[in-house]
Amino acid sequence: MRKFISRAAALLLAGVMTAAVAGCGKNSDSEAKDTAKKWTELDQTQITEAMGLGWNLGNQLEASSGGLPSETCWGNPEITKELIDSVKAQGFKTVRIPVSYLDMIGDGPDYKIDTDWLDRVQEVVDYVVNNDMFAIVNMHGDGYYTVDHSWLLCAEDDDKQTEIKDKYGKVWTQIADRFKDYDQHLIFESMNEEFNNDYGKPDEKAYDNINAYNQIFVDSVRATGSNNEKRWLLLPGWNTNIEYTAGDDYNFKIPTDNGCKADGKRIMISVHYYDPFNFTIDE
């Protein structure tokens, strides 16, 4: 997300997620099993109420320079537990944590995420969930045409898409496996504002690739097992745009969720609403 938009998104988080009509590292083994036992079932009404007002932790874990994510490279200090405590004290119940991976991902065929980077992501997630707040973790700048070394590019030719989709699935498998025993306070968001960098109407073929990425995301997360078989998953459409996602004349498709073991639906839809521009974005 562009830096200035990240701040606007904080105001919108609580209102832009709705349940969709779809079917459904650091911890020791003993700690992970204990965490997994604490799951509380929340249906779409209950989790929306529990998440309450949300705050976007922008310009930090998604910040990057020259293709390398760096928490402080856009001028913000390191994230601390005290910051999250302060956010909670203001009445927020949910923190969205945008994360870029970019050059923190190794070469294929394994596409291994840098361990220290994933450790830091987990540390920040723990600041949130251990504070009895909800955390939304996404893959953020990897799909931007304006970011150096981005790779999740929906308008690339078909011969590139096979590699992109393989990499995407393997990266999300690693993220999901790291967090699979976390309880219902953790939500995964597949990506952010993914589009072909053209602000006109969506390109049908590129939109097909976005739909494919969302399906790969759902399948990859569910396949890691444990609480990921019933975790709420958050999915955007074209550029996470409300009209191009919810409108009747476009191409957004809700993935199948055959790996979901929950008693009920576990897919949410993410939309960003930036109108009127002079109020929501223009500084």
Rank of each mutant, 00 (worst) to 15 (best):
M1H: 13
F4I: 15
I5D: 09
I5C: 05
I5H: 09
A9E: 08
A10K: 10
L11C: 12
L11I: 04
L12N: 10
G15C: 09
T18H: 09
A19P: 07
A22S: 15
K26D: 13
S28V: 07
E31K: 11
A32K: 10
T35D: 14
K37Q: 14
K37C: 09
W39P: 05
E41L: 13
L42I: 04
D43Q: 09
T45E: 14
Q46V: 07
I47V: 15
G52C: 08
W55P: 03
L57R: 01
N59H: 03
Q60N: 13
L61E: 00
A63L: 06
A63T: 05
S65N: 12
E71D: 11
T72W: 04
C73G: 07
E78V: 13
I79L: 08
E82P: 07
K88C: 00
A89C: 05
F92H: 09
P98K: 07
V99R: 05
S100Y: 03
D103E: 12
M104H: 13
M104V: 04
G106K: 08
G108V: 07
D116N: 13
L118N: 01
L118C: 03
L118W: 02
D119S: 14
V121T: 06
Q122V: 03
N130T: 10
D132A: 13
F134Y: 15
V137T: 08
N138H: 02
M139Y: 04
M139L: 14
G141W: 03
V147R: 04
D148F: 05
H149R: 11
S150H: 05
S150A: 15
L152Y: 03
L152E: 00
D159H: 10
Q161K: 13
Q161C: 07
T162H: 07
E163W: 10
D166I: 03
D166N: 15
Y168D: 01
K170P: 04
K170N: 04
K170V: 05
V171R: 04
Q174R: 08
I175Q: 00
D177C: 01
R178E: 08
Q184T: 04
H185S: 05
F188R: 03
E193Y: 01
E193Q: 11
F195S: 02
D198H: 12
Y199W: 14
G200I: 10
G200V: 12
K201F: 11
K201Q: 13
D203S: 06
E204I: 05
A206N: 05
D208W: 06
Y213I: 01
Q215E: 12
V218Q: 02
S220L: 06
S220W: 00
V221N: 06
R222I: 04
A223C: 09
T224K: 01
G225L: 07
N228L: 02
K230N: 06
L233Q: 03
L235F: 01
P236Q: 00
W238G: 01
I242T: 12
E243I: 06
A246Q: 13
N251C: 08
K253V: 15
I254Q: 10
T256K: 14
D257E: 11
N258P: 10
N258L: 15
G259L: 11
G259K: 06
C260R: 01
A262S: 14
A262G: 12
R266Q: 11
I267L: 15
V271W: 02
Y274W: 15
Y274S: 07
Y274R: 05
P276F: 08
E283S: 14
